[in-house]
Design a protein around this nucleic acid. Structure first.
Length: 199
DNA sequence: CCACGGATTGGCT
DNA sequence: GCCAATCCGTGGA
């Protein structure tokens, strides 16, 4: 039976949570319908030692949510046009979170196509392009500024436990798109999955 | 297939 | 004023 992850899943270490999020189902309940996808790529951010984390230089209005107790969503706006979402981890006041970089669409795919491309009929290329990047995930699932701070044990956004199919391997690499702390091997992904943004 | 650059807002130095 | 945890279109190989 599928079960929503409870608060104590998220209050653990950021790398433990990051790795365990792979293979689980991210669910977006919106206007009575369900959009969902399997998490296939994540990155860990740890403000205590990681210059690329938004919390590295301490508390600001923008990163406030990242200091909350694990189990809330930290959504930030970047490059003047994109939103990206993170799962906050830890016992509180830690400034650590896991960036959701890619999902494999499961439910509500037609809705996701409309959210991303403003049409329901898409090509194979566009299908691969639907949710293979952090801002694409947010666009497809309808996650934006209003969702910042959303509690993951509610009805709007939550994650369902799901056993990872045998044979799937986890890859580890440096993170993507950052200019500081570039060598930390804090990106985790499911090998050979079509929706992983980069090998 | 790969490399490059433009888009466009807001947070911080 | 600078520049970002990105995406997409363009142009060349």
């Amino acid at each position: 039976m599928d079960l929503k992850l409870s608060g104590n899943f998220y209050t653990r270490g950021v790398h433990t949570v990051a790795k365990e999020l792979l293979g689980k189902l991210l669910v977006r309940g919106i206007k009575g319908s369900i959009l969902s996808g399997i998490i296939v790529e994540v990155e860990a951010y740890d403000g205590s030692i990681d210059e690329a984390a938004h919390t590295f230089r301490g508390r600001t209005a923008r990163n406030e949510v990242m200091y909350q107790k694990g189990g809330v969503l930290y959504v930030y706006f970047t490059y003047g046009m994109h939103y990206c979402c993170n799962v906050v981890t830890g016992k509180g006041n830690e400034g650590k979170a896991v960036l959701i970089r890619a999902i494999e669409p499961v439910q509500g795919i037609a809705r996701m196509c409309i959210n991303r491309f403003s049409k329901e009929e898409i090509t194979q290329k566009e299908y691969t392009n639907l949710t293979n990047g952090p801002a694409k995930v947010c666009k497809a699932l309808g996650i934006g500024r209003k969702e910042n701070g959303t509690v993951l044990t509610g009805q709007e956004i939550y994650i369902i436990d799901r056993s990872v199919p045998s044979g799937e391997e986890i890859g580890v690499s440096k993170r993507i798109g950052i200019k500081k702390s570039v060598d930390l091997p804090w990106r985790y992904y499911i090998k050979d999955n079509r929706f992983v943004s980069k090998k």
